[in-house]
Design a protein around this nucleic acid. Sequence first.
RNA 1: GCUCCGAUGGUGUAGUCCGGUCAAUCAUUCUGGCCUUUCGAGCCAGCUACCCGGGUUCAAAUCCCGGUCGGAGCACCA
Length: 533
Amino acid sequence: MRKDAKDVATLVGEVLSGLEGDPESWERRLEEIAPELIEEIHERKQPITGLPDLNVEDGCHVVLRFAPNPNGPATIGSVRGIVVNSEYAKRHHGEFILRFDDTDPRTKAPLVEAYAWYLDDCEYLDAVPDRVVYASDYLNEYYEYAKKLILMGAAYVCLCERDEFKRYKDAKEPCPHRNTDVDSNLKCWERMLGGGYVEGEAVLRIKTDIKHKDPALRDWAAFRIVETPHSRPEIADRFRVWPLLDFESAVQDHVLKVTHIIRGKDLMDSERRQRYVYDYLGWQYPLTLHWGRMKLHEFGRFSTSAISNAIRCGEYTGWDDPRAPTLRALRKRGITADAIRKFMIDLGISETDISLSLDNLYAINRKIVDPTANRYFFVWEPVTIAIQGAVAMIATPLCHPDRSDVREIPVGDTVAVCSADLDGVGAGERLRLKNMYDIEIVKTNPLVAKHIGGNRGEWCATEEKPRYPIIHWVAGDNVDVVVHAPDQTYEGVCEIGILSEEGNIVQFERFGFVRIDSVDFDGKKAVAYFAHR
RNA sequence: GCUCCGAUGGUGUAGUCCGGUCAAUCAUUCUGGCCUUUCGAGCCAGCUACCCGGGUUCAAAUCCCGGUCGGAGCACCA
């Protein structure tokens, strides 16, 4: 029908001109003769958002993995890998593996503590792995596959200097070791394993196509000698020949029966390199999906080594510094796992490079946290106002606008308010102390105000909505609070009730949501971390 | 230099495979209004997008070619 579109259009025109009435009457008529078609007219494509379908056959056991190098805790980048892979495993009732790709004892040396941190972070993200694998536990297995490839003539020991090999590779020329016979290669390999070469003297290369148009694929290195001991005490100096990522990962993914690899597109060439190994050994490569480079406005690039450096030079206080792009920092600030998961899932897995703001994450978190977070008054940079004619009373602000429980705050004749709320406010001007009463400034130095309006002992502002500002305050018994935010640190005083909120996310009214990190009952102090407005 | 990916509002994202229902989805940001004993939330309204140029076709965000721009790889890092 499509190729006869012109004729069809003509025909449709003829038919249409033969009809009576308006489109509404046509629809009514259609309702009578073919009601099932009505739905089709109104049907709209359901816009799907988030992760695309994996299109797996029924009964297929899906296996996914996230494979970080534990040279630090999970960054926001790692979180994407954990969330997306674990989410697909959940959807397909499959398996989610956490594999530590820790086969570089030196350049990106694993941090012993980081293994446990990853496990803990996965748990927080509701992504507890079904299986945990340490790549550094399988050196002998990699060696066996290496030997197999050497015997097939698919791998060779290369004794070129690094630069020397690069020159051959760039010229699409084989290096002198490429055509070494199998027996000699095997001897060299044994010698490599046995310590007969020093670091840097020999590598094992996978034979690909030295004339391949993509230089990234030509005879890549699979093993090298590293004499630095591994950070895991159980491995330590037991091995000196280590596989590189492409080899280690190739073997692991096969052995673990991984069905889908979902990762950043920076590893696209990795797949092409690894396919040579898979083809030699007759294995089937998993299906792959990639996402583009992710950058956050707030952080710029976030590599583990960059954060590590920032900590070392004192720029960050630690891996959980609120300014650091790590999951530990987000956790400390009260960003919930559900919010983080949704944030990552909503990004989907488009190959477009993205640069986005954490505002999206904050908006999601706010929706989750707002319905339950208790409200408190926190006064930063406090100044004290003496109030003439004040009556002792107990103010009763709501703990939450959707609930009826209140916090009872005894008030005498002074209150503390934010100095910023008094900027430019002169004598004669009025303010409403929220949930208490209205005041009029008498003089500003020292600060004195007078109580105006209302009854005594209860909510006693004038009834009508004030035309002057409504501000919050703290009175009587209070707690010294420090709030660490990414951009600055706030110091001030807060209601005493905050002492029972350790570990909770609360809202400091007119300030934002914070997580109470620690409290000191005796010293009446608390430390909080700022989440978002 | 060689190679590989990508390009939809301020930001992300759906739609692209298989051209027409796309005068283009959803979210967020921003602006205005309502509500409100703060802020936030909620409700209503508004703004803003198919990288450029050719081609194919009755019809192109969608297919083809060429540019431009962005990212990545060409490590004895992951």
